[in-house]
Design a binder for these strands. Structure first.
Lengths: 355, 355
DNA sequence: GTATTTTATGCAAACGTTTGCAGTTTTCGG
DNA sequence: CCGAAAACTGCAAACGTTTGCATAAAATAC
């Protein structure tokens, strides 16, 4: 109906015959304002339907009370859970969270950094693209002393606060677990080595093999984006010639699930003929039959840590240079049916078939 | 190192001996500025590492180029997918998306509306809480002619743009499907009736029963928040006494999955003894054994529609009053094993057991 | 009752843009 | 070479806050 409904503090001031400064201070509970005027002001603010203009305040204070969050995608279980936690936690502290997706495209990530800077976010948390090796597009934030935290997918030689899972240990434990369950020809389907996660998991994998005197074979490791399509392609290759492996360590659960379903189709029995382990403990891993052994990365804990790190840095005087530090989130192997010990069912007597 | 790194257009202006207005116009490609100066300005902007301050521009223009999105939670498959799509689409058009979670708490939703308004978002899309029946906390947006779109969980008597799935048809089709597969004692586990989704699905369920001359029994319908815990509680009740139902229509897949697992434990065979249908077509529904029949709600299409509606409204002159209109997103029943026809396996001869 | 402290309030500048209007320069026809 | 139109550029105000400093009023001390 009316044209300009937007009430401002000057409207309140006029109405009350006060100065805008007094109104501003009253609304912000400044100690120098008497309780009586504070009440008057707040009542009038309510009556007029006043809502503060965050942009004006932000401009003046040079802070937006908004925090940027860049993740590959929010439709994947792990980043979604982390984002949820971060968002809820920061909200409690009066911050907005601008959740952005890079869609695993470096180009988009760079653009995101640019526009997020433009909105003058107070801090930034990022889990990078699979392909980000040069992180200089985040320099603006460092240069201007804007708190910057990386998590999960983190840079290697870039001085920032880092919060990551223990991927080396994860890779090691998975591999050792498979060995202990009797595997000695273990395929590893890894993500691209441009990403720290996979570098470390591969290292764990290799070390576990070495420790148990199993020779590492280059042909038994795949580097690829961990999509369903790529997993299928890998299956085609793996099962195109004998001997089949007796264990597969997939670097995510989508891949593990795809392999499992493939095995069903070609009548390779899991876990009797082949043991499968995934990574991330996606809800689907627990539900499929046989349920899939996976590695829990405790996304809620990671999210909590990221939020705390941000809040911490936000307290500190902006002048203090960003310090490098690495925090490790533990992992836990969740053993399930897909890698269970070879207890042959009484039904059939076929115990060892492939070898 | 240096204290004030933040370059502004006045820095550019000084450096180039131009006025700030010219610089501003040059950066915005205003037609009245010669190409030569535009180039000069842009070069200098680059050289100085200038980044526009969105808050300042927003204050002046009274727009933030930010759009609010309120969903119950982003860790659930359906809203997560929609959010992803909306975000990507709006990003292409130069908008930020502030994704917020109400965590299904009305109180939080109200607070969210308030603070989102404070940030002067240019538009708002919301999928409400399960318990929101009074939507007046969104009045501020309507009153100020800020585009407002509801999707999925939408108000009944509140004049706004609405985009929703065809939940009545969904409920009807699921029920009819179960009947056609031979069920005639169908339990429905519904969400609370404060939410439009469930009202409509229940209506569909009842109408399908009536159509097929199956009496509706009040004791065969449950209204509850659709969590795992509640699903288990419902199972306890349902299977505490005979006769067992021969079909269950669960209003989400988490519930369907929980029931399925419960049935495994108590040796009720699915689909032979009991058929189960879920809703939303969560990825888990396809993966579990037996796979669960569910209803695809095409989240990507819904997201697309929401984004388009927002963009549409953003074009229009703010003066135009918000118009009420409802758009329907189709649904599709995805038939899977959990409700397959009772083809007895040759193994055992038990064909019909319960009846 | 005056001087001093304490308590409340107001003035005005500042934050970094955009934009209507006015002013200046250039172009060009005649 | 003049005058008018066209092409550029600049001035200054405005957007809605916050805050250092100054000032006014009230309370306290002597």
């Amino acid at each position: 109906m009316s044209k300009r409904t937007e009430k401002t503090i000057v409207d309140i001031a006029e109405e009350l015959k006060l100065s805008v400064s007094t109104v501003s201070r009253a609304l912000n509970n400044h100690p120098n304002i008497s309780t009586r005027t504070k009440e008057k002001v707040k009542k009038m603010a309510n009556k007029l339907g006043y809502r503060p203009n965050a942009m004006a305040a932000g401009l003046r204070n040079n802070k937006s009370r908004t925090i940027g969050l860049v993740v590959p995608r929010i439709s994947m279980f792990f980043p979604a859970t982390i984002s949820t936690v971060i968002q809820n936690k920061l909200h409690e502290h009066g911050y907005h969270v601008l959740i952005c997706q890079s869609n695993d495209s470096l180009e988009q990530e760079i653009a995101l950094a640019e526009t997020l800077y433009s909105t003058r976010i107070d801090a930034l948390a990022v889990s990078s693209t699979l392909y980000t090796t040069d992180f200089s597009h985040f320099d603006i934030f460092k240069d201007n002393h804007i708190p910057l935290v990386f998590f999960d997918r983190v840079p290697k030689d870039y001085k920032v606060k880092v919060i990551k899972g223990d991927d080396y240990l994860g890779g090691y434990k998975v591999t050792e677990h498979l060995i202990e369950k009797g595997c000695n020809d273990i395929v590893h389907i890894s993500g691209p080595l441009t990403c720290n996660l996979y570098v470390e998991r591969v290292a764990g994998y290799k070390d576990a093999l070495r420790k148990h005197k199993i020779p590492f074979k280059k042909s038994r490791i795949f580097y690829q984006e961990l999509t369903k399509e790529n997993a299928l392609a890998a299956c085609e290759k793996i099962f195109s010639k004998t001997p089949y492996p007796d264990g597969i360590f997939a670097a995510n659960d989508t891949t593990a699930i795809t392999i499992l379903e493939y095995c069903r189709k070609i009548n390779v029995r899991v876990p009797e003929d082949l043991k499968i382990v995934g990574y991330s403990n996606d809800p689907r891993a627990e539900i499929i039959t046989p349920s899939i052994t996976s590695v829990d990365q405790f996304p809620a804990i990671m999210g909590e840590k990221v939020a705390n790190a941000l809040l911490d840095l936000l307290q500190q005087p902006g002048a203090m240079p960003q310090r490098y530090s690495e925090e490790l989130v533990p992992i836990q192997l969740i053993e399930r049916a897909s890698s269970a010990a070879p207890v042959a069912k009484p039904k059939t007597t076929v115990k060892k078939k492939v070898k």
